[in-house]
C-alpha cells in the first residue's frame, strides 16, 4: 500500500520508523476519504488501512516539527503537491485556521487548539448561521434513528475549505426515467389519414354539386 500511494514522493521508509501504535483518528480519516487529500479510488481492506496508517502516525508534525515556521503569506512553490494550491477562502492564509505551534491541531480565534475531527467548531466561527442549521439537523445529511440521528458527514466532507469554490461539486446524474411508449400508429400518419379523408369529402361535395 505504501509503495503504491506514498513512495513516489516520500521515498523509502525504514521498518523501524513505522508507528507501532496506530492513530485511530488517522484510520477514521482514511476510511472517510479525508486522507490522503487527493483520495484513493479503490476499496481498501481493514489491513490495508492499518498499514497505511502505520506510516502516517501523527500527521503534519511529521515534517513540520523539523521546519522553521515562516509566517509570511506567500505562494508555496517548493512544498509537496498537496500544499500547492491557490487559497481564496476569505482573506486568509494558513495560520487563520492551522495552529503554528502544533500542526496536528486547529487554532480557534479565542486561542484554544482543537483536534482535526472537531473541525466544525472551526467553521462555525464565521459560518455561524449554517452551523446552527446543521446542529438543528436542517443542513447536511443525518442518518440513524429519527429521534436521535447522527451526522453522516461533517462540513469538510462536502465543502473543501482549500478550494476556490467550496460549494458541492457537480456529480453525474442517474439515468432518466423511461419515456412513455409512443402510440402504435405514428401521429404523423394519423394527420395524413385525416387529411386524405377531408380531401375526399371535399371531392364528394364538389361532385355532388355538379
Amino acid at each position: 500500500m505504501y509503495k503504491k500511494y506514498c513512495k513516489g514522493c516520500h521515498g523509502e521508509v525504514l521498518e523501524e520508523f513505522r508507528y507501532k501504535d496506530v492513530n485511530e483518528a488517522v484510520i477514521d480519516a482514511i476510511k472517510s476519504g479525508r486522507m490522503p487529500p487527493w483520495g484513493i479510488d479503490e476499496e481498501l481492506s481493514e489491513d490495508d488501512i492499518r498499514e497505511l496508517a502505520s506510516y502516517i502516525g501523527d500527521w503534519c508534525n511529521l515534517c513540520h516539527k523539523r521546519i522553521e515556521t515562516n509566517f509570511t503569506p506567500r505562494e508555496l512553490v517548493n512544498a509537496p503537491p498537496n500544499h500547492r494550491f491557490k487559497l481564496e477562502h476569505g482573506n486568509f492564509w494558513c495560520f487563520a485556521c492551522h495552529n503554528p505551534e502544533n500542526r496536528d491541531t486547529f487554532l480557534l480565534v479565542n486561542g484554544s487548539a482543537i483536534p482535526f475531527n472537531k473541525s466544525p467548531e472551526l467553521c462555525r466561527q464565521c459560518h455561524a448561521v449554517i452551523y446552527k442549521d446543521w446542529k438543528m439537523r436542517i443542513h447536511g445529511r443525518w442518518v440513524g434513528n429519527i429521534s436521535n440521528p447522527t451526522p453522516d458527514v461533517i462540513c469538510v466532507d462536502c465543502h473543501n475549505p482549500h478550494d476556490v469554490n467550496p460549494a458541492f461539486k457537480p456529480i453525474t446524474p442517474e439515468k432518466p426515467p423511461e419515456k412513455p411508449p409512443s402510440p402504435p400508429i405514428p401521429i404523423s400518419f394519423q394527420y395524413f389519414a385525416t387529411a386524405i379523408m377531408a380531401f375526399s369529402l371535399v371531392l364528394m361535395l364538389y361532385s355532388a354539386r355538379k
Binding site: 447536511g140 443525518w142 440513524g144 429519527i146 458527514v153 458541492f168 456529480i171
Partner: peptide, 22 residues
Amino acid sequence: TREGRYPACVEACPVGARKFGN
C-alpha cells in the same frame, strides 16, 4: 419509518436536501 428509521430517499440524498420528522 415505523421502526424509527429515515426513509431511503432521505439517507440517499448526497446534499442532505431531504428532511423528515414528526
